[in-house]
Design a protein around this nucleic acid. Sequence first.
DNA 1: TTGTACGCGTTATCAG
DNA 2: CTGATAACGCGTACAA
Lengths: 335, 335
Amino acid sequence: MAYTIKDVAKAANVSIATVSRILNGQTGYSLKTKKKVLEIIEEMGYQPNAIARGLINKKTHTIGVLFPFLSGALVTELLRGIEKAASAHGSSVIVSHTESDEEKTMKYLQLLSEKRVDGIIFTSEVMTKQYYEFIKIMNVPIVLLSTKSEVFPIPYVKVDDFEAAYSATEYLIKKGHTEIGMISGPDTDMIAGKPRIEGFKKALQDHQISFDDKNIVIREGFMFTEGKFGMLSMLDQKPDVTAIFAASDEMAIGAMFTAYQFGINVPDDISIIGYDNINIASMSIPPLTTVQQPFMEMGESAGHMLLEMMETDQLSESRILKHSIVERKSVKEKI
Amino acid sequence: MAYTIKDVAKAANVSIATVSRILNGQTGYSLKTKKKVLEIIEEMGYQPNAIARGLINKKTHTIGVLFPFLSGALVTELLRGIEKAASAHGSSVIVSHTESDEEKTMKYLQLLSEKRVDGIIFTSEVMTKQYYEFIKIMNVPIVLLSTKSEVFPIPYVKVDDFEAAYSATEYLIKKGHTEIGMISGPDTDMIAGKPRIEGFKKALQDHQISFDDKNIVIREGFMFTEGKFGMLSMLDQKPDVTAIFAASDEMAIGAMFTAYQFGINVPDDISIIGYDNINIASMSIPPLTTVQQPFMEMGESAGHMLLEMMETDQLSESRILKHSIVERKSVKEKI
DNA sequence: TTGTACGCGTTATCAG
DNA sequence: CTGATAACGCGTACAA
């Protein structure tokens, strides 16, 4: 069994109060006793019990993070950023994998609540009333990461999907393309689906390029396979397409895969721009030009924001992080 | 402030002891009081304080996981498995990102120790004496994941890298190849480097294929770029190579990238087999034939093993999980 | 069947 | 400068 502050006190011939004071850098003891106590602590290998501390301080220095899915390069980057921020602040992070399941999410919230985490980061998922009410009762700060809520007053960190999609599309247009298609995720997805579609539409419109159903194929998800089949549909419904905006890098690479199978050269025949800039974007043939989301920074920012809220006990200002276009080899000027 | 067991007791006109008993499914109370207490709990939204519980039970139902790097598909899969196992057991997982830094690792161990985690999973990194001694003093069970120790008695979960590399190489040989190269990670890496090299060598030897320095290029890491440049060296030092075993999928895809640049067709001119089977393996052109490591299962297995050790207080048996070869399109029969 | 009271390891408020 | 001692929220002998 580990030593307690009592053991230290006894061994040092002082009271536990004194030991506690020394441990917490407070004032009120002679240099001599401090030295002695510190020595004893070193000698015994005493470690303060964070659980007991948490009980009395009502601070666990632990934050909970909820991920709907626990796979993909994206998640690790977000997590890395969060962990970095937390760690810099002496806090730990507990990860939860909700699988987008309402029941599981509630179960995890319950668990985090019982563990008395100091705050919660909720990622990539829509915040329901049920979740919100629960967290409100928990009475801990929360920040949304890579998602946002129109109805609840919760600070968020994300990029502007509308703007980013607009940029991507405009990039294609500026390269001289006019026959542009989009391979999209579900338009019912109000976070990563709809806004990107709207950005795409708006860019076309602003540049006097007509838009109709032929310009877009909507898929059920954002994965490689969706991109593969999405490209099939696109080729079918808009044979004259010369440039494509894919709503994720995986989809873009899926599209390139199909293009390859059809003997279509990227970027000579068709240009493709992706979205996310995850690590595989630089590993495809050709390397993928894409819209970068700074996932690590997003995670870090969310972490700091949460820590800040824990201290000030006020809502922080939401942060829109800057996207940017990473030019590689999958887009070519249209002559 | 959240309600305490005291509040519940008062509201229900019983003692906290009774509430506690009901909460913990013990015996010794009438059905009537149980009903009443449960109602009140529901009504008040009372949640037991896991911190206070942990203090008295000396169990936090939390495990700590140490990752040297927090990026790559591999990590998420391992984590997913761990989280799954932990969650099924009502435990939470705290992630730590050590960056392979000794000082940081110790800092995290210290933190986990103070937080009184019930156990530790140590991944993908060599267990040093310093770490081991510390954890021994912590007196919590530990399991190694995707790594092992020759010197310390710690149960581990991994695949047999030697065997897997042997299989991969033999697969190439059985496809009729005799001029086989390997693009390897550092041979100083006793976990993921050396064993794979040895497996490769042994397979050649067992099939009467001579081996010398020309057959292998050793790189500093396992990433895409290493594969890219590794392929360059390989082409240079062994121009007649017809098949290549890469020590990771990322390297394999890097090698394919270089091949592409040189107008070398995979698999028509050169066959390539990877190692890991991370998600990008199925997204390359051509899709990558590779050795699968069941990362998710590995994580899950490690999680269960740890939980088991926490209960039995004994060392569990190490587990070698089965690798397998996933045949896709990057390897072709040599005629 | 139920309640009282002590202890888990700390911190913090008092006295001295 | 230092030391008792009361919390923190809960589990559990021991009594009733």
